Amino acid sequence: VTLFVALYDYEARTEDDLSFHKGSKFQILNSSEGDWWEARSLTTGETGYIPSNYVAPV
């Protein structure tokens, strides 16, 4: 499992996005959609889309 960590805070703009804070960790579920990845937050357990340029591999 590849884990990613948030580099910045992000406020969701749609109900499909995940809001998160810098330092939040994610499991990436689908990275084939270009700049928006489907991810599960390891902090909240919620699933949604995150901007790929806001995260980096742990």
Rank of each mutant, 00 (worst) to 15 (best):
V1Y: 14
V1R: 11
V1C: 15
V1H: 14
T2P: 14
T2C: 15
T2D: 13
T2E: 12
T2G: 12
T2N: 12
L3S: 06
L3C: 12
L3W: 11
L3K: 05
F4V: 13
F4D: 01
F4I: 04
F4Q: 04
F4P: 01
F4C: 09
V5H: 05
V5S: 04
V5L: 07
V5N: 02
V5A: 05
V5E: 11
A6N: 00
A6I: 02
A6D: 01
A6G: 04
L7C: 09
L7D: 02
L7P: 00
L7H: 02
L7N: 03
L7S: 02
L7W: 03
Y8I: 06
Y8F: 11
Y8A: 08
D9T: 06
D9N: 07
D9C: 08
D9P: 06
D9Q: 04
D9L: 02
D9Y: 04
D9I: 03
Y10H: 05
Y10T: 00
E11Y: 09
E11D: 10
E11R: 08
A12S: 11
A12K: 08
A12I: 02
A12E: 03
A12G: 11
A12R: 08
A12L: 02
A12H: 05
A12D: 02
R13L: 12
R13T: 13
R13Q: 14
R13P: 07
T14H: 14
T14D: 12
T14V: 07
T14A: 12
T14R: 15
E15S: 14
E15C: 14
E15Q: 12
E15L: 11
D16P: 03
D17C: 15
D17L: 10
D17N: 10
D17E: 15
D17S: 14
D17W: 10
D17Q: 15
L18Y: 05
L18S: 01
L18F: 10
L18K: 01
S19K: 04
S19A: 06
S19R: 04
S19F: 03
S19Q: 04
S19C: 06
F20D: 00
F20W: 01
F20I: 03
F20T: 00
F20R: 00
H21C: 13
H21N: 12
H21I: 13
K22Y: 05
K22D: 02
K22W: 04
K22S: 07
K22V: 10
K22I: 08
K22H: 06
G23E: 04
G23P: 00
G23N: 05
G23D: 06
G23S: 03
G23Q: 03
G23R: 02
S24E: 15
S24Q: 15
S24T: 15
K25N: 06
K25Q: 12
K25C: 14
K25M: 15
K25T: 12
F26A: 00
F26S: 00
F26M: 06
Q27I: 15
Q27G: 03
Q27E: 15
Q27H: 11
Q27L: 14
I28D: 01
I28Y: 02
L29G: 03
L29Q: 05
L29K: 05
L29T: 07
L29Y: 06
L29H: 05
L29S: 05
N30H: 08
N30C: 10
N30Y: 07
N30I: 06
N30K: 08
N30D: 13
N30V: 08
N30F: 07
N30S: 11
S31Q: 13
S31T: 13
S32R: 10
S32H: 10
E33P: 11
E33G: 14
E33F: 11
E33K: 14
G34L: 11
G34Q: 12
G34N: 12
G34S: 13
G34I: 10
G34H: 12
G34K: 13
G34F: 09
G34Y: 09
D35P: 10
D35Y: 15
W36Y: 12
W36N: 05
W36P: 04
W36V: 07
W36I: 07
W36F: 10
W36H: 07
W37I: 06
W37A: 02
W37T: 02
W37R: 02
W37G: 00
W37F: 07
W37P: 00
E38L: 15
E38F: 15
E38N: 08
E38A: 08
A39Q: 00
A39P: 00
A39C: 03
A39Y: 02
A39D: 00
A39G: 05
R40F: 13
R40C: 09
R40K: 11
R40I: 13
R40T: 11
S41H: 11
S41K: 12
L42H: 05
L42A: 06
L42F: 06
L42V: 11
T43Q: 11
T43N: 10
T43D: 14
T43I: 10
T43P: 05
T43K: 09
T43W: 07
T43E: 15
T43M: 10
T44H: 03
T44F: 03
T44W: 03
T44S: 09
T44C: 04
G45D: 06
G45F: 07
G45E: 05
G45M: 06
G45N: 08
G45A: 04
E46T: 07
E46N: 08
E46V: 08
T47P: 02
T47C: 10
T47W: 08
T47E: 08
T47I: 14
T47N: 05
T47Y: 08
T47K: 09
G48C: 04
G48V: 03
G48D: 00
Y49H: 07
Y49Q: 08
Y49S: 06
Y49W: 15
I50M: 02
I50Y: 00
I50N: 00
I50Q: 01
P51H: 07
P51E: 02
P51Y: 06
P51Q: 05
P51C: 10
P51I: 03
S52F: 07
S52W: 08
S52Q: 07
S52I: 06
S52A: 13
N53C: 15
N53H: 12
Y54F: 11
Y54H: 09
V55Y: 01
V55T: 03
V55A: 03
V55H: 00
A56D: 05
A56C: 09
P57L: 09
P57F: 06
P57M: 09
P57Q: 08
P57I: 08
V58F: 11
V58I: 13
V58E: 10
